[in-house]
Design a protein around this nucleic acid. Sequence first.
DNA 1: ATAGGGTTAG
Length: 626
Amino acid sequence: MSIPQLLPTFKLPVQLGNLTTPWNCRLRELSKQRQYPQALTLYIHMLRSSFSPNTFTFPFLLKSCAHLFLPFTGSQLHAHVIRTGTQPDPYIRTSLVSMYSKFSLLNNARKVFDEFPYWQNITICYNAMISGYTFNSKVREGFVLFHRMREEGVEVNSVTMLGLVSGCTVPEDLTIGVCLHGFGVKFGFYGDLSVVNSLLTMYVKCGEVELARKLFDGMGERDLITWNAMISGYAQNGHARQVLELYREMKLAKMRPDPVTLLGVVSSCANLGAQSIGREVERQIHCCGFSSNTFLTNALINMYARCGNLVRAHAIFDCMAEKNVISWTAIIGGYGIHGHAEIAVGLFDEMVESGIRPDKTVFVTVLSACSHAGLTDKGLEYFDAMEVKYGLKPGPEHYSCLVDLLGRAGRLKEAMDLIKSMKVKPDGAVWGALLSACKIHKNVELAELAFEHVIKLEPTNIGYYVLLSNIYSDAENLEGVLKVRVMMRERKLRKDPGCSYVEYKGKVHLFYCGDRSHLQTEEIYRMLDKLESLVKEIHAPAEKYQGRSEGVLNTGVHSEKLAIAFGLLNTTSGTEITVMKNLRICGDCHLFIKLVSKIVNRQFVVRDATRFHHFRDGACSCKDYW
DNA sequence: ATAGGGTTAG
């Protein structure tokens, strides 16, 4: 076949696009309106009316199969294309390549792509194949094809760029991403906002928020997507403060927020424990008419739950017309965090009854709720049900919850056996959970074993060294303590001191472990002494508590205890106290806090600030945000 | 053929 012979096929769709049969016109309409099932039904009618499909028919049908994820129908259509002897023009082939890519059948896609001599592959074919690679997270292959495309002199357009850039999603892809950035600048794609936006997103996904911000600052023109990409980029990387700052700037620039924007803002409020700002944003959500957006409502439930306002969280949850697994996860997790495992478990059952299939994430939430409240057997039950009843294979994240569950209950041997029986490779968190259980139950021997494993998997995680060191010091094993210190020094690991902070009257009050530098130190320590003795009075040992072990009371002067004592001294009843804490694994004051909460009838929220950058930025206050 | 989105323990 020579080039001249093919030329008519190339031109056909453009010239005769409007002159095709009514069938094809209707098909195009349906495809435009994304009514894919209707499009396929129409095809059946077409065949029944003995209309034979032509070049214009197939792309719409293939696209419909791709969107509906119907691999079987799709390959039947492919066979049909061959059978009808339809000239497979670039448009059909592009559709085939893109459809097979959506089904992750890259070999089939590549076969269609390779079947014809290279000069038949025009830009759209390349684009489809390149996007196919990146869609299946094979950026490298996509990049190779991009090079070939250029060598063969095929025109590169914005879609080529978008396909490639959007495939760079992990730090390892950054080299390619930067290369593409350079290419874009050199060949004039910088004027195309969609390309620059995708570059911005690429930097964000690779964790390079600063580079993303640099690009953002240098942009002459910004649209809603630009702002959203930057805002959610900050939100996903834990820079909650920058999210709020940027949101304010956005409003100053007279750019109207949409649900995606507000989503980033709400989830940042959840991570900051900033309920007052969250309330403000909720009002805006109602004003803008986004109240029925499921994404946003889920984020709001999560925000209120994390800020300790379970009443509001539950009220929003109840009002939702369509609750999905994520809505349930948010509310269950909310009760779990605050130690109400019975309610959490009850909600889980209710969810199943309402016909929603639990997923892996909701099981993580339920298991951890059980573990915090000492519902050991209930947790084990759920773990079994997960695979037997719901066919979900437990991952390392579930095993770590279960090890934590057994470990807190003092069932260390069972926890160890569980790890040995795991079908998946245990990760750092699994061994880490065992290590912290050893801390609670003072088991030095097992701790050493767990430490050996955990350190191989996460050699730079400082928390585990600290944990082992504390275990040694509890056992008065000075040699052990020194050994760990030497290891830390050799590996040049410096420990950020553990600290907690409370926001009070727009100022941040920061406490270190055993800290005596606060102005109210005397009062705080008196309060803490009182709390310690009250807690000891009501703390029931395991045997008195129907076999439920609530864990061991921690007697050290931990930073979160100081923060709580400070909060109690300075705030009135009825307000909840949010304590932010920078280290996760160190002192586990969970039980202490829970009991104090019972005694004084106050809500406490201890938020993990490890992932967030307050401490690097220097502590900041709510007033700075707004 | 195509840039932005909610949940999760340790």
